[in-house]
Structure formats: structure tokens, C-alpha cells
Design a protein around this nucleic acid. Structure first.
Lengths: 234, 234
DNA sequence: GGCGTTATTATGTATATACATAAAAATCCT
DNA sequence: AGGATTTTTATGTATATACATAATAACGCC
């Protein structure tokens, strides 16, 4: 072993990654403790800690106090998908963005918003290069976001307004494939039952719901992302 | 300002988050530098660094040397979706898993694998509680993963075999909604043109392709995940 | 033997210090 | 003025040290 010292935590991370990758440390294996690794690599324990910590964050290692650090058994691949503002998503593709408000009403909130308060119901269409891109069907809780009532939403979209106005603490999101039905087919100008990609999202501020939105994309839409930009190995 | 000292980096992170959240530091605002914050919070600069670093990782802050730290203008929401092994995905839902190999051939590799070598072409069906769950259409590069040729894949799926055998460095993944056509409709037992959720994934070992797979899920499939388990704020 | 207490151990984190690095600002030279 | 060079500054990272915490192992008592 030539044993030249590893100077930075990235180099250590790379070496650990190499050993996992080369099956020197197979899945389930308990690797040496930080102090030993620090000695072997000729660096401070804090540096080893930094390297292992970030591999643990990435789901590749499992660490428990006193027990030690193990190579993850089922390194669940994790893909992170970005959820940009629609305007940006469209303009990033080099297309011309246009927004069109379809309806704006105050109605009783739908059950999935889980609130007693009235809700602002907005439907709108987002265009890309004069082609319908996505149909937005949104409910905004008027109790958590009362300012929304003063917004007409005929110029700037609720999507954009909320992002810069109503901070959220958490939310949930789901992706499905659905057949297009009803008014949707008119707005997106597609035949009945055409497969469309649907994103449903609800966001909360602590325990209060802010908004629930259903985004129905025109046919051909594709979410694309990469796995393994960070460390990763399997 | 009562100014009680913040003892740990999580507390500092929470306080920074609070200020962003409360619009004391609005989007685009350049926040005080680490040294000043350390003085204000009564802690070491390294502790402030840890807190800000992790917020920057989460996409909430943008940091540049010499320039300083700004609150992100368009805090892109990031949703991380897990990519488990199919057996696990099904069993985690409390359903009985069954695997059925449909075909296994060595053929010329399709163009998107970007290789000259022959490829192993496998199609299979994964069942959940005796209902077709997902149809797998996979190509494996025989040069990068020659061991695959010795596997019959009639008992354990290529999905499972690859995860525990062929480590990858990176990959890409995409989600679409498509109409079901051809043999698919037979295997999934659905009418022609039924909307189905499709995941396409390609994985690489450095510059060599390992496998490309198209997973077509039975109708009703839904990817669900949460945003904001980590810090987050908008 | 079984149960409660104490010691041990690996990770988690805070600290002060030092130096590296990137980028902007100031300076110098022609 | 203008281009090249130096200084300044904020973040990035490595270091030694110290103590906290969680979980196990060892011990001791009845």
C-alpha cells in the first residue's frame, strides 16, 4: 500500500466509494470506525466524519452510535426531481410562456384540503409557444392565505404568486397517468381518454393547508432526471 | 433581542429558516456573513457554516465565495422519489409478489444503449396478489455485465439480480404517461390505448452502459412522495 | 440466574485555529 | 484610460481537542 495521505474529505469519500464499488466492503459489511480510518488515511477524524456523513445522507451507509457504520443492504436508488415554477420550466425549454386564467371562484373547500374554511378555486391554462402545455386546477385555503382573495390572478398565475408569497413547511406530491376527460379535452385540445401525465400536490404551513393543485400536462410530457449526481454507487 | 445563545447547528438552522420564512430575509437578500452570524448567535463560525451549508444543499440558500450568502430567488422544490426493487415495492404494500419470465434472447443492442456489443433482451411480468403489476422490458449490455449470460432469470428477476450484482455510477430516469399498445395490453390484461404510467431508466458504470429498462405499470399506479422532510421553507 | 448499574465505545457535535480558494475591489504601471 | 497585478474578503476545509449521546457490554448484587 503506497499510502499517500488523502488530503480532503472528497478524496476519502471517493476511496470509500471505490471500496464499496469493488466489493471490498460488500453490502451489509461493517466498515472500520472513524478513528481507525483517520489513522489509515492520515487525516483527522473530523475529515473522515465529513466524508462518511455525506455518504450516509445519500443512503449508501447506515450509521448508528456505538454500533458503527455499515454499507447499506438495499441501497434504495433516490432520484430527486425538481419542481420549478411553470413559467421557468417552459422558458428553460426555450419556449414562449403564456398564462391564461379560465375561472376564479370562492367555493366550499373540497374534502382533501381538510379545512372548514372557504376556498378559492382557480383553473388556468399555461401555454408554451402557443400550444397548451398544462391545465392547472387549484384550490387555495382562504384562511391560511387570505391575501389570495385580493389577487385577480388574471396576469400572474397562482403558481407563481404562491411561491413568492406563501411559504410552506411541507407537502406531498404524486404522479399518475390518467385518461383525459371532460373540460380538459377541450382546453388541451385532445381526444377523450388520451393518456395524460398528472401531478397532484398539496402544501401545508405547519398543520394548516395552503393549497392543493392538480396539474394535467399535455400529451408527450416527460419528467426527466438523473440519478447519481451526488455520490451514489449501485 | 434576548439573545440567548444557540447551542447547536440545528437551532441556528431553525432560526435562519424562521427569518427566511418570516420574510426578515426575503428571497434575493444577502444575509450577514458567517463571522457576524457566529458573533450574533454566540457560537463558532464552523457551527454557522454547518447550518448554512446544509440549507444551501437543500437549495434554500445560494453561496459564493467572497460574494456571500443569498436567499434563493426561486427555491426549486425538490422531491426525492425512492426507486426500490420491485419485489420490495410490492411486498411493502402488503401484497404477495410473483415473478414471471416471458422471454430471454440475445440480440443486437438497441440504439439507446449506445453500444456495439450484443445485448440480453428480457421481458418479464411482476405480479402483486395475482394481478399484473408491471411489465418489464429490459436490455442488458453483455460486455459490461457478462455474468448476466449465465443467468436464466426464470427464478430471480433481472431487476433484483442487477441491483445486488452490477454496481452503477450513474443513470437517468424518466416518467411518462403513454397509451398501452401491442403485447402489453395482453400481459397487463387491459384494453388498447389504456393510459399507463411508464418509467424508463438507463444505468451506467462510468462510460459503459449496463442496462436500459422500460417499466410499464398497470393502470392506477401512482408515485407518491413528500417534499420538505428536510429543512425546506417555501 | 436475573436485574439494575456502571463502564466502554463509536458516532455526533462544538470549539479555536489555521490555511486554501474564488472573486471582487483596489492599485499600479504604462 | 486600460490592462495586469496585488489586496481584501467571504466561504471552504483541515486540524486537535473536548465533551455529548446512544447503545452495547461488563459488572455486581441479591
Amino acid at each position: 500500500m503506497s499510502h499517500q495521505p488523502f488530503r480532503n474529505w472528497q478524496a476519502i469519500q471517493a476511496e470509500v466509494l471505490r471500496r464499496i464499488h469493488a466489493r471490498e466492503w460488500p453490502p451489509g459489511h461493517t466498515i472500520p470506525n472513524e478513528a481507525d480510518l483517520a489513522r489509515e488515511f492520515g487525516c483527522a477524524r473530523a475529515t473522515v466524519n465529513r466524508a462518511l456523513q455525506s455518504l450516509a445522507d445519500a443512503g449508501l451507509l447506515e450509521r448508528r452510535r456505538k454500533v458503527g457504520t455499515r454499507v447499506a443492504l438495499h441501497p434504495v436508488g433516490k432520484a430527486t426531481v425538481d419542481i420549478p415554477i411553470l413559467r421557468q420550466e417552459i422558458e428553460d425549454r426555450g419556449l414562449r410562456y403564456r398564462y391564461q386564467l379560465i375561472s376564479r371562484n370562492v367555493e366550499a373547500a373540497p374534502p382533501h384540503l381538510r379545512t372548514e374554511a372557504a376556498a378559492l378555486h382557480i383553473t388556468a391554462l399555461h401555454w408554451a409557444d402557443e400550444m397548451p402545455y398544462v391545465f392547472e386546477d387549484r384550490w387555495i385555503d382562504t384562511e391560511t392565505a387570505p391575501d389570495a382573495l385580493e389577487q385577480s390572478f388574471d396576469e400572474i398565475s397562482a403558481n407563481e404568486w404562491l411561491v413568492t408569497t406563501a411559504p410552506y413547511t411541507h407537502g406531498d406530491i404524486s404522479f399518475t397517468a390518467q385518461p383525459a376527460t371532460g373540460a380538459l379535452t377541450t382546453w388541451l385540445n385532445i381526444p377523450d381518454n388520451t393518456p395524460v401525465f398528472v401531478i397532484e400536490r398539496t402544501t401545508w404551513d405547519r398543520d394548516a393547508p395552503i393549497t392543493a393543485v392538480k396539474l394535467t400536462y399535455a400529451p408527450g410530457y416527460r419528467i426527466h432526471t438523473v440519478i447519481g449526481t451526488g455520490p451514489m454507487a449501485f
